[in-house]
Design a binder for these strands. Sequence first.
DNA 1: ACCTGAACACCGTTCAAGT
DNA 2: ACCTGAACACCGTTCAAGT
Lengths: 226, 226
Amino acid sequence: MAKRERGTLSRAEIVRVAMEVAEAEGSDALTFRRLGPALGVAPTAVLRHFRDKDELLLAIGAQLLENALAEVDHDEPSWRERIMSLSRATRRAFVAHPRVAALVATRTLRQEAEFRTVELIIGAMEQAGLNGRAAASMYRVVADTVLAWTAFEANVHAVGLDVMRQDGLAWDREYVVLPADRYPHIRGVAEHLSEVDREDQFELALELVLDAVEARGNAGGQARAI
Amino acid sequence: MAKRERGTLSRAEIVRVAMEVAEAEGSDALTFRRLGPALGVAPTAVLRHFRDKDELLLAIGAQLLENALAEVDHDEPSWRERIMSLSRATRRAFVAHPRVAALVATRTLRQEAEFRTVELIIGAMEQAGLNGRAAASMYRVVADTVLAWTAFEANVHAVGLDVMRQDGLAWDREYVVLPADRYPHIRGVAEHLSEVDREDQFELALELVLDAVEARGNAGGQARAI
DNA sequence: ACCTGAACACCGTTCAAGT
DNA sequence: ACCTGAACACCGTTCAAGT
């Protein structure tokens, strides 16, 4: 709560503290009125650095993507390994901050980190042998697969944190208890539902998409878009 | 604004009007204080039918899923066609109401419509030849692929509606304008980025997953989970 | 792209009271 | 799972004023 000298507040520090507050106290706590005290300034001081709350959220999203990009091996010669490296790093970076990730993972950020990510994926598509419309099309399948899964997982984690604290019920607990006569198939596999490893699924879903990229690239990427 | 007789308000009507208000005026307008007048009651009357706002949101999500299930051909004998039918219906039902869909698509609903959906998918996995842990695992890959893509698309539509009204900039417009020297790959395919058809991508992503289900089912589903 | 404090126009939710 | 109106404890954002 210590007051600070003027001119010492920065966008970077606001983003950092905003992420800390949200992860520690829940995304409901991510308000200017709580952020002010946490930064040692008046709540409205944050508005001198971000036009509005949405601009702050997009900056948080950009920070998550920067964290991801910092872990990617950009010199990896295999396009396929480069994409897997980017994908795993993105998943890790977002799921590491599930509450803020859930708020921003489906947003178009339009910031430098996003442009660099797009550039990386399209470059990989071209190396795989795709051009023009085929490269654009498969870029979107790859990017949206990574983003959609990442956003989904972040949401599941974030909601899970809140719900479990709220009513103590885990997802799998709920399902095991369903009546067998009405839901025989669920009942038959209920015991296995909680064992599923989401990282494995993410990897599998991505490998399937990259198999398709590889097949289309080898066939000559100009022929068909999808 | 017409006042109504007591006892005539119902959960179903509240859900319907809430969806109308949100789609017509933006998801910011989905508040009890606006919903009251739209229903002809006091804002707090809604709280006599839903414990809190989150319960209303989950009911809206259940309605979207009911809309989807109503379109599915449950008697289709091919498990693969049944899954595709469910997937397409889910995508359509959610994207038809993008703003509310964006609010609920990643939530675990824990309502009857969701249990029926899970039951349908697991039944299809078993018909494909998967059992136990393998069926549970592939159920999750299928369900999460549909949900993740649907949530992602709903978000893109919802944000798109708001952003386009806000600053008149479409996603593709933004990217065409990037400097070619720093983003050569983007520049090379920029003209194609706006042509991509999301429905085609959704279909492709799903077909790839179902290919994997088919391959594992034929190989004998007990062997490996993923 | 300075920081503050008061003010404005909103929220969700609770609760006593009215049918 | 009745409905209302006032009240409470919050929000984001604007704006005049202070450094």
